[in-house]
C-alpha cells in the first residue's frame, strides 16, 4: 500500500509514512496525527485521499484551515469493503465527528466474477477460464471483455454497481457522525462512464450518477469536486529539483517513455486544493 508508493515515488515525494499502535500493519500518510482526538474529521478513500503525488493532500489542508484534528485513512486502491473488513478502522470511523468518504472506484468491489485481493486494487477471477488468476483491476477488466465477452462485462458492471451501493449503505449505517461523500474526479457524475475508451470508464470507475443520487437517502451529503481539464503534473525531484522519472523503465516496462515523469491519472495538487476549499466551505 503506502510502502509501494513510497518506494516508487521516494525521490519526488516523501509520504512520511507512520504506524499507529491501533493499526500496526497499515502504513498511514504522514505527518503523524492523533486518530482518537475529539472532534476529529476522518477521511477514507484511495490514492487520492492518501495524496499520491502531492505534498499537501486535501485532508491535511482541511485540518489546517479549520484547525481541527484529522485522520487521513486513505489507502491505495481501497474500496468501501477495505474498511468494512477491518474492525479497527470501522471503530475509528464510528466515533469520528465527521467522516469524509472519497468517491472510490466500483472496480475495487468483490462481486460477480471478481474478488478483491491484497488492497482492493488487485482482482482475482472466481469463475471461468481464468479462475484463480489475479491481475491489477484495469487488466482484469480488459481480460474479462476480451476473453469472457461483452455480455459478461455488462453483467459484471451491474454486479459491482449494486454491491458498491450495498457497501456504502453498510458504511453509512456504521457511522454515527456527519457523513460527507466527496466526488473527486476530472468528470462530473455520469460523464465518467465513457466505455469507448476503457472497459471500466474513467475514475471513479463504473460509479454512475444514479448511484451518487442514491447516497443522500443513506445520510451522505454529496460534494462534487470536478476539475476538467486538469493540467498534467510534471514530477520533480524534491531535492535536486530536476524532472524525476518516477515510472522507471525497469519497474514499468510498458509505460510509454514520454509518460515516465508525468502524473496523468492521480489527483493533481490543483484538484486537491479545490477539494479542500469545497470541504472547508461545507464544514465551516
Amino acid at each position: 500500500m503506502g510502502l509501494g508508493y513510497q518506494k516508487t515515488d521516494r525521490n519526488a515525494f516523501d509520504y512520511d509514512l507512520w504506524f499507529d499502535v491501533a493499526l500496526p500493519t497499515l502504513a498511514l500518510r504522514g505527518p503523524q496525527c492523533d486518530l482518537h482526538a475529539d472532534n476529529c474529521i476522518s477521511f477514507i478513500g484511495a490514492a487520492q485521499t492518501f495524496g499520491r503525488f502531492v505534498n499537501n493532500p486535501f485532508p491535511r489542508q482541511v485540518g489546517r484551515f479549520l484547525e481541527r484534528p484529522i485522520a487521513n485513512l486513505g489507502f491505495s486502491g481501497a474500496g468501501a469493503e477495505f474498511y468494512l473488513q477491518r474492525p479497527a478502522l470501522m471503530a475509528l470511523l464510528a466515533k469520528s465527528d465527521t467522516v469524509v468518504v472519497q468517491s472510490m472506484s466500483a472496480r475495487s468491489v468483490s462481486a460477480g466474477v471478481f474478488k478483491t485481493a491484497r488492497n482492493n486494487g488487485v482482482l482475482e477471477f472466481q469463475a471461468g477460464p481464468r479462475k484463480g488468476e489475479s491481475f491489477l483491476a484495469q487488466e482484469a477488466y480488459r481480460i474479462l471483455k476480451t476473453e469472457y465477452g461483452d455480455d459478461a462485462l455488462v453483467a459484471q458492471r451491474k454486479a459491482v454497481q449494486e454491491k458498491w451501493l450495498e457497501q456504502h449503505r453498510d458504511l453509512a449505517s456504521q457511522i454515527s457522525g456527519r457523513k460527507i461523500f466527496l466526488w473527486l474526479s476530472n468528470e462530473a457524475p455520469g460523464d465518467n462512464l465513457d466505455y469507448s475508451r476503457s472497459a471500466i470508464g474513467q475514475f471513479p470507475h463504473m460509479v454512475s450518477a444514479q448511484m451518487v443520487s442514491a447516497l443522500p437517502e443513506m445520510g451522505f451529503e454529496v460534494i462534487e469536486c470536478v476539475l476538467n481539464p486538469e493540467p498534467v503534473q510534471i514530477l520533480i525531484n524534491d531535492h535536486s529539483h530536476m524532472v524525476e522519472r518516477v515510472f522507471g523503465a525497469q519497474n514499468f516496462p510498458n509505460r510509454p517513455d514520454k509518460l515516465r515523469a508525468l502524473n496523468v491519472y492521480y489527483a493533481t495538487p490543483a484538484l486537491h486544493d479545490k477539494a479542500a476549499r469545497l470541504l472547508c466551505k461545507a464544514l465551516l
Binding site: L3, Q6, F19, P24
Partner: peptide
C-alpha cells in the same frame, strides 16, 4: 512504542 517506531523508520527506505 518500539514496534510502530521501527516500522516508521523502515518505511523511510522503504521496506516493511
Amino acid at each position: 512504542a518500539p514496534n510502530t517506531e521501527t516500522a516508521r523508520l523502515m518505511a523511510l527506505i522503504p521496506v516493511a
